[in-house]
């Protein structure tokens, strides 16, 4: 049995938790999703599924519409599907590899969205996997492609390579000191953007950010990835400098914050997702800096961060829960882990 990628220790080894790549593709013979009817969408699902699964059973096939709301939420929280994917009632296809590191969504905003994720810092490996799936599908499907513009997508913001590369990064010191805001305009100059853990339009939780390329056209895949890498390295240097400054001038404050976080997580009886995420962020920093001299939990912090989200908690409980019930289940789960 292959372990899910987020159980790998490398998600907890530095500022970068994971590396993710997404490729957007459309099939030439069908109109884009906006103009696609249910019958066309259904054929597209079966054709794409056949193209991906040809000659192997590496992927699990799922019908997202037949899953309950809780299961759908779990997939959202794991970043396997996007909110856009769950929006409408068109037939959808979802293929997931056993370790959940590769997934293919059919009939998201574009016909095909290929996703690959690697623990820690390894964008090149993630891209390589996504590209393999891309080539595999292309063997039996003709993509919408333009000589000048490259791969054509429903939204011109994805045209060209259709590539969105991103790192999930932990920036506790920049976040707490509000330095993060001053960083945004600088990285925007390089066509790079920073979002909260749950993507476009969501606020950051637990000082976890997604850093990704904004532009998909005019640069090769390799250049996009290298560009993102170098901007990210810069951001991480800033984070490390902020940490060093804090360690040099206010070490006791930092120790206090980390041990308080540990105290609350190991003792609270009710806790919201937001509070738990922020405390887990402090704990993660505590382990990274060796300030926190306590046994490490049996799971990676990033995995715990996912497990305390509403969908995951609800699935664990096996029933619908009120907000208060969830807060108490969350506190209990965290006490058991730490």
């Amino acid at each position: 049995m292959t372990l899910p990628w987020y159980q790998e220790p490398s998600t907890d080894e530095g500022q970068i938790l994971s590396s993710r790549v997404r490729l957007a593709r459309n099939v030439k013979k069908y109109p884009f999703k906006f103009k696609l009817d249910a019958a066309g969408a259904a054929v597209l699902v079966s054709e794409t599924t056949a193209a991906v699964t040809t000659g192997q059973n590496y992927f699990h096939r799922l019908d997202i519409h037949s899953l309950g709301q809780t299961e759908q939420k779990v997939f959202l929280e794991k970043h396997i599907v996007s909110p856009e994917f769950l929006k409408d009632s068109l037939p959808k296809g979802l293929l997931i590899s056993e370790s959940e590191n590769i997934s293919v969504m059919v009939n998201e905003e574009d016909h095909i969205r290929i996703q690959a994720v690697e623990p820690g810092k390894n964008l090149a490996a993630a891209y390589k996997m996504a590209e393999l799936i891309d080539d595999l599908i292309e063997e039996s499907v003709e993509f919408a492609f333009h000589m000048e513009y490259g791969y054509l997508t429903a939204c011109p913001t994805n045209t060209g390579t259709g590539l969105r590369a991103s790192y999930m990064i932990h920036l506790p010191c920049l976040d707490k000191s509000d330095l993060i805001k001053t960083l945004l305009p600088h990285i925007a100059k390089f066509g790079i953007t920073l979002r909260g853990i749950y993507g476009e339009g969501t606020a950051p939780m637990g000082s976890i950010y997604q850093i990704s390329n904004q532009n998909t056209l005019g640069k090769s895949e390799e250049d996009i990835i290298t560009g993102l890498q170098s901007v990210t390295e810069n951001v991480i240097t800033q984070e490390q400098q902020a940490l060093e400054k804090l360690l040099a001038s206010r070490r006791e404050y930092l120790e206090d914050r980390i041990y308080r976080a540990y105290g609350i997580l190991t003792n609270s009886r009710m806790i919201s997702a937001k509070e738990a995420m922020d405390l887990l962020s402090d704990i993660r920093l505590g382990f990274l800096t060796d300030i926190l001299q306590k046994p490490k939990p049996s799971k990676q912090i990033y995995q715990i961060m996912m497990e305390i989200q509403p969908g995951h908690l609800q699935r664990r409980a096996g029933e619908e829960m009120t907000d208060e019930e969830r807060d108490s289940a969350r506190a209990k789960h965290l006490r058991e882990l730490f």
């Binding site: 459309n26 030439k28 069908y30 109109p31 884009f32 999703k33 906006f34 103009k35 905003e109 919408a144 333009h146 000048e148 513009y149 490259g150 791969y151 054509l152 429903a154 939204c155 011109p156 913001t157 045209t159 060209g160 390579t161 066509g191 532009n215 998909t216 056209l217 005019g218 640069k219 090769s220 250049d223």
Partner: peptide, 29 residues
């Protein structure tokens, strides 16, 4: 959002202007 691949030709001037501004380029590399 566009309706199909041909929309890129049907609204070619607008799409090109858009790509130039949003993407900063009109040439796939």
């Amino acid at each position: 959002k566009l309706g199909c691949d041909t929309c890129y030709q049907s609204f070619s001037k607008e799409v090109q202007a858009l790509l130039k501004n949003v993407q900063g380029s009109i040439r796939h590399e």
